[in-house]
């Protein structure tokens, strides 16, 4: 039982990364009906930005600012800066391709990803950086289940972000416009709403969320790598498909499900088998639910 609970906490933490990153895929798909294959690398860039801000803040102000404040400042500043990365990707990569075949947009994402990875290598070199811990790790033991304050923070911060996003999408007029885009892309300009506002906003939010996921990831797995976004990005993409294209709630839930499957497969089988078995399970799920969990039944108009 303790063993199970222990893994449950690990799965919640691991699933949080997938959930928060996969939302970025899902939001962009909902609005522009394209999968932004650069998103994994946007996550990587966001993590590096977070690393830079955290290092800077710790060097400048750890003497007079409490740790939690440095953490919050790092999150806010990183989100702000990373959102511009999202806007940049939309503006340079996708906007010129509206109306182009969708395959072109897909490979554009891949190319931007490669540019980010190699750009990072050129600017920062091949040395590996380590994300500084933003808080002292404290371990707790409740009934034989071990967990740290970092794990709790990762899970809680992810849930808070997703709740904030949900509120934004349900309650604000920008969120309304995003939902309207997912229903009928062509009718949105007739409401006086510019797609050139809504599209970059969507990319900005996705990138902002991914960058916070990066900070949290850096607290759990501090080694940074220019290629760290690839596998994580692909897996989050799987979660976005599994959740149902364009469904934000679905992406989040599927992200957690992915985390659970991976962790619990590793609980039973040798860890080298983990992804093989985990993704075979997901393949089977998709065979029976090709639309994913919350795939839209109504036909949306094609765009791009």
């Amino acid at each position: 039982m303790e063993y199970f609970l222990q893994n449950l906490i690990n799965a919640l933490q691991w699933g949080s990364f997938y959930a928060v990153i996969s939302i970025g895929y899902s939001m962009v798909y909902g609005v522009l009906m394209l999968f932004n294959f650069a998103h994994g690398d946007i996550f990587m860039v966001g993590t590096y930005i977070g690393f830079g801000i955290a290092t800077l803040l710790l060097a400048l102000s750890s003497a007079f600012l409490p740790g939690w404040m440095i953490f919050i400042l790092t999150v806010v500043v990183t989100m702000f800066l990373a959102s511009f990365v999202g806007v940049f990707v939309e503006y340079v990569g996708y906007r010129p391709l509206r109306g182009a075949p969708r395959a072109s947009a897909a490979i554009t994402g891949l190319m931007i990803g490669i540019i980010f990875e190699t750009g990072n290598l050129i600017i920062l070199g091949a040395q590996r950086f380590s994300f500084p811990p933003l808080m002292e790790s404290v371990s707790y033991n409740i009934g034989g289940v071990y967990f740290t304050n970092v794990k709790v923070l990762i899970i809680v911060a992810s849930l808070v972000m997703m709740l904030a996003l949900h509120t934004f999408i349900q309650k604000t007029k920008w969120g309304m416009a995003m939902r309207a885009m997912s229903y009928d892309f062509l009718a949105v300009p007739l409401m006086g709403v510019s797609i050139n506002v809504i599209a970059p906003l969507t990319f900005a939010i996705g990138a902002g969320l991914a960058s916070v996921a990066g900070i949290l990831y850096g607290q759990a797995y501090p080694v940074l790598d220019p290629y760290m976004g690839i596998l994580l990005g692909w897996k989050a993409f799987v979660a976005a498909i599994l959740g149902g294209r364009g469904s934000i709630m679905g992406a989040a839930l599927a992200g957690y499900l992915l985390g659970f499957i991976e962790i619990f497969v590793a609980m039973v089988f040798p860890s080298t088998f983990r992804d093989l078995i985990a993704y075979s399970i997901i393949l089977v799920i998709l065979t029976f639910r090709p639309r994913g969990f919350f795939g839209m039944a109504h036909s949306t108009r094609l765009r791009l």
């Binding site: 939902r179 309207a180 997912s182 229903y183 009928d184 062509l186 009718a187 007739l190 109504h298």
Partner: peptide, 11 residues
Amino acid sequence: VPEGRMIFGNL
């Protein structure tokens, strides 16, 4: 007011 109304059914 476009042909086919184009209302947002999910709103």
